[in-house]
Design a protein around this nucleic acid. Structure first.
Lengths: 216, 216
DNA sequence: ATTTGAATTTATGTATACAATTATACCAAA
DNA sequence: TTTGGTATAATTGTATACATAAATTCAAAT
């Protein structure tokens, strides 16, 4: 019973619009209408409305009786997200260190090797992709849906700024080194170290990101 | 432009179903269908579907091609939520201590006085209401939408257990005392103290809640 | 008796028609 | 020229009809 689900148009529209907003293709203050989106995306209002209501729940837009207002991510949001990640992301690493399996460690290792490869290639998009994947895997391996659901939205919202950070070669290398240290703590099943190293890592990422944030 | 919004049927259905799930009227493993909800709630499928998709985003249900599965909150979720609140809620108090205004302090005071009144009356529902309001006000006075949006869902999800905790007179009194201490730190604009006291408060709440959790 | 396959039922996904509200534009009157 | 009111248009909210897919049922064949 209860077959698994297909990717609906609602989901596709949601991800597409979320991306457009988070990457700045729709900017804070822009206005949309459902009919404009119907014309642009070629689907009916129903899946579009579904997606919009979910975006509103994430406070990326505001739906009013006269249209849709894009909110997006402010600089204060960016700082606030890092402040929360500094406090929470260590917890995810700590939990992961307790329960991580050999296979999960191998998956993480694979991610790190790919990250190293792309750092060598100086390919920011791919570096960012692997960087994201590393963190997502740790959320997942923490074994806590709550941690996952709390951190994923925060992480998604700053992907644009994280891409900018790893575009700078030195930071990309540092980040990789820090990831490897976290990986080592996880493979040692050392929760305290994993926690500490992850906090340090996020703190450094924040310092770097907020410092060069103006260049965006 | 952009008048403010009315409370739609979608919103009403969302809140109602969220409540039913969080209070255990629908339990983990229960199955629903849209048509059953249409019959029960007397509105059409459209607002119901809207609400269901938002509930799915909060991982309270799972929508499949053959029906709706209620997930609700597990005991692990409860522990995980407290672990996160212990790390984050102090941050909200810290930020609030920096920026809180006289009027906001008065609103908090009013909440505390009501809480005291209901503690005297031994009215668990009202105590829980004021307890929730105190925390919500601090999220709000932190001035961070991100903190607010992060903490509110977590807070809502454990309201049932928090009500159980304040049903015990001693814990209700302790909680009030701790709230007053936090209030004092806020009125002194002492971020470090507000942070520390809030962490202690949430930690005690967790210890008490997890300890007596089995009696539910 | 078992297995296979087609028809039926039941569920959500999608499109569209209709309702209600409100900003805007327009026109007339002072 | 200004003001006020009314009609219009544009928007989201809601209801419903249709599409699609999968589980179930039941009959027929082996």
């Amino acid at each position: 019973m209860f077959e698994h689900k297909t990717i609906s148009l609602s989901d596709q529209v949601f991800e597409r619009l979320e991306d457009e907003i988070l990457w700045g293709n729709y900017q804070r203050g822009d206005t949309l209408t459902e009919m404009k989106l119907v014309a642009d995306l070629g689907v009916s209002r129903t899946p579009i409305r579904d997606a919009l209501h979910r975006l509103e729940q994430e406070r990326l837009i505001e739906i009013t009786p006269r249209g849709i207002l894009v909110l997006g991510i402010t600089k204060k949001d960016l700082a606030d997200i890092y402040a929360i990640r500094i406090r929470v992301e260590g917890l995810a690493a700590r939990e992961a260190a307790k329960y991580i399996t050999e296979q999960q460690l191998n998956e993480l290792k694979e991610t790190l090797d790919l990250q190293e490869f792309y750092v060598g290639k100086q390919n920011p998009d791919s570096i960012k992709g692997m960087d994201s994947q590393f963190h997502r895997q740790i959320y997942q391996f923490s074994g806590s849906n709550i941690l996952y659901d709390t951190l994923i939205p925060l992480h998604k919202k700053i992907q644009r700024y994280r891409r900018a950070a790893v575009s700078v070669s030195e930071r990309a290398k540092e980040s990789l080194t820090e990831h490897r240290a976290i990986y080592e703590a996880l493979s040692r099943h050392d929760p305290a170290d994993a926690d500490r190293l992850m906090i340090e890592h996020v703190r450094k990422a924040r310092d770097y990101t907020l410092e060069q944030e103006d260049r965006l």
